[in-house]
Design a protein around this nucleic acid. Sequence first.
DNA 1: TCATTGTTGACAGGGACCTGTCAACCACGT
DNA 2: ACGTGGTTGACAGGTCCCTGTCAACAATGA
Lengths: 154, 154
Amino acid sequence: MSAHTEHGDAFTALVLEVFRVNRLLHDAGDQLAAPAGLSTARWQVLGVVEHGPIPIADVARVMGLTRQSVRETSALLEAEGFVEFVDNPRHRRARLMRITPAGADAMERLGREQAAWANRVGGAQALDELRTGVRALTRIRQTLDPDPPLADSD
Amino acid sequence: MSAHTEHGDAFTALVLEVFRVNRLLHDAGDQLAAPAGLSTARWQVLGVVEHGPIPIADVARVMGLTRQSVRETSALLEAEGFVEFVDNPRHRRARLMRITPAGADAMERLGREQAAWANRVGGAQALDELRTGVRALTRIRQTLDPDPPLADSD
DNA sequence: TCATTGTTGACAGGGACCTGTCAACCACGT
DNA sequence: ACGTGGTTGACAGGTCCCTGTCAACAATGA
């Protein structure tokens, strides 16, 4: 039908699979995060803020999102009491997002539940397959992404 | 830090990579589809409708989406003239979505451009890595998805 | 010192997905 | 024949992401 090479065919299959799995993982993340009053998106933002006070624009860069998306999520996190904004001595406009004790608590609980879930679902897969999958996606990301997000050093 | 097994660790890395790559692929799809007046979502719906007249609920099942999402996308596709709704002799309420000549044209052009793009990006990857990646994601999807989407037989 | 340039948070508006709810419709068992 | 239950499209409302635009702010060079 379409003029796909073997590589093009395999890549296309991977693309469609990424779309499907992404939605399932996102939903699973929402279900994991819901008891803590969070969602996948808020959880991820909180995971960055957890490392230390940081302006919105920096969070966006780390996550590979736009400032606007992060701003919206951050406003909700603040309204729910998971983060607070404190003055930035280096920039009067760019205030720093800081995790609150409530936010830290939620992250701690979520960390435990995520670990249990990841061990359970990941345990049902072959280790080498998981690792090859990560490598494949990473290479594709590097091929597609003109400027990759900053390292989220753990 | 968190009590991750090796499997849990690899799985978590895969999850985060899926999130990042999904966004890049979605954006790339939008850019591919834009010249044809489509987007990634509309393109995918049109790809199902292309196989023959079908009600909205069936499209949703095939794609693993809700009827509501497909309905919205379908309304836009109809407004743009890519599909039309025709009476369903078997169900008065569930009218059939049918691709228009304009829709078929757009899909044909997009098919060629997608093939070129997939060959180019996929060609930069190792074939066995791509295939293992597909297998890994497929297995994860089957682990997560209680009722998998219908086959999109080509 | 001062104008230019780049970055920041904010605001408006839109796209694509979700859940919850409803009336219309079909199919099925009694 | 008829009610019951499941499915369908529609509508309301919400989340998470995007682009485009703007004024406030910082940093830089003339």
